[in-house]
Amino acid sequence: MAEALEAIKALATGFATTFKHLFRKPITEEYPEFKRTLPERTRARIILTRDPDGGERCVACYLCSAVCPVSCISMQSAEKEDGRRYATWFRINFARCIYCGLCEEACPTSAIQLTAMFETCERDILTLVYEKEDLLVDHGGKDKEYNFYKYAGVVTQEGGKGEHIKEDKPVNVKSNLP
């Protein structure tokens, strides 16, 4: 009997709670009228950033496309005249993208970054396929300083052999020193 009473009491508490809610002001934020500023690390629309010198950061190493669980990234790498590796084309199909952010984690050059821009709804699904022109921005995104080619040992306009950060002068093969 006590159990039954307890049950009834529990039920009543529940009903009372929901009933009280009827008279409270809804806490909903109404989206298009009210837009909350999202945290910087929100994972939404992807961009390709540039290094501080304005060069494209992406070296088309294929790591993002390899790690992408839905295979929405495709690209073609090539070599520029100055020796930089770059993407001749770079395509993200946002209709497939699940905004998991693995590409950003995989990117060794801080090129691919997710931003808080999430309003990418389109009527024609093909317009959700973004090319490199659409993805490339003219800033460094979250990582303002990094410049991959200043560290990599490869010869580019950023430096020849031995001119990168933390590099010794090239070995002189003919040197008389032992």
């Binding site: 040992g153 490869v154 010869v155 052999k161 031995g162 933390k166 590099e167 010794d168 002068k169 090239p170 070995v171």
Partner: peptide, 23 residues
């Protein structure tokens, strides 16, 4: 290791192979 790395200049080895001695 946080010191400086040894580098080498590369050679042109013809149309088939790219040389990158640093590695």
């Amino acid at each position: 290791y946080l010191g400086k790395k040894r580098t080498y200049t590369d050679q042109f080895l013809g149309p088939l192979l790219q040389h990158e001695m640093n590695r």
